[in-house]
Amino acid sequence: MAKKDTPTDPADMSRRQQIVATYRMTKQTDKRIGLWLLGSFLLFGALGFGLFWILPGSGIIGLVMSIVGGLLFGFLGMMIVFSRRAQRTAYDRMAGQPGAAASALTMLKRGWKSDPVIAFNKQQDVVHRVVGPPGIVLVGEGNPHRVRQLLASERRKHERVASETPIHEVVVGDGEGQVPLAKLVRHVQKLGRQVKPAELTDVLARIKALDANRSAIPMPKGPVPTSMKGMRGNMRGR
């Protein structure tokens, strides 16, 4: 009987499959990931063993607790290091690809509504939208000068339907006044809480009406990076 293929969509994978897939992807560019994981396991494991060893207890029970504590600390430390290095590798692989910002925005937790590619031009500059506690966040990626024109156009459209809702503009990039891809999610989260959860429903309804009136336009050409939701679920648990 032929062996079943491993699902390519992270959402269809088991947690073990996600870990294996993430490790393989990371190892392609981070050749020392195995050494980092081994080192972090030993370091945190030794720390956990030491902490539990000095706790009240002696004999076999104290030794067993120290071993268990060392293993728990070791695995915890290893997963933290794995998460950080895997995330950095994912951002490095996505950098410069069309739709990279949209893929990064999938790392936002519950309470955020992300809509990729709500506007773009012939040069493949795009604008994504996120709605959450800060209000409406318009995220542009592409040529800084052209994308700011797109952002300004989208701001005017959103102000017509949600004039009382704060609207933020973010340009992804490594230049002055731009936000690096790896820091995009944290930057968006730090915009503050300016809209109450009860108000988000009304904001989303207004935006839905805006999108319904948009003319049907084709999606921009080119590959869009894989969503990072699978990796987030893998690293943080489900």
Results as ranks from 00 to 15, higher is better:
A21D: 13
K27M: 12
Q194I: 01
A100D: 06
I80C: 03
L105A: 07
A119I: 01
R206M: 02
K122I: 10
I136D: 00
L43A: 15
S163E: 10
L200Y: 00
P144W: 11
Q17H: 05
I118A: 05
G230P: 04
A205S: 12
A86G: 15
A104P: 07
I80M: 13
Y91N: 04
V68K: 01
P166Y: 08
A104Y: 03
G175E: 11
G59S: 09
P223T: 08
A86V: 08
L191T: 02
R160V: 04
A101T: 05
E176I: 10
M1F: 08
W112I: 05
A152V: 10
V117C: 13
H187Y: 14
K157D: 13
W53L: 09
V131E: 05
M79N: 13
A100M: 04
M107Q: 15
K208Q: 13
T226A: 14
A102N: 05
Q189T: 12
L37Q: 06
A86R: 03
A209D: 13
T89Q: 15
I54H: 11
M231K: 03
P223Y: 03
R238L: 13
R32G: 11
M94N: 14
R160D: 12
P98L: 12
V117Y: 05
I33L: 15
K221A: 13
H187L: 01
L35W: 15
F82D: 08
H187R: 10
S163W: 09
V131K: 01
G222I: 04
H187K: 09
L200P: 00
G222C: 06
A182F: 08
G173A: 07
A198Q: 14
S14W: 00
S215G: 13
P144G: 09
P225R: 05
T106L: 01
D92P: 00
S83V: 03
A216E: 15
L138F: 03
L181C: 02
P98Q: 08
Q87E: 14
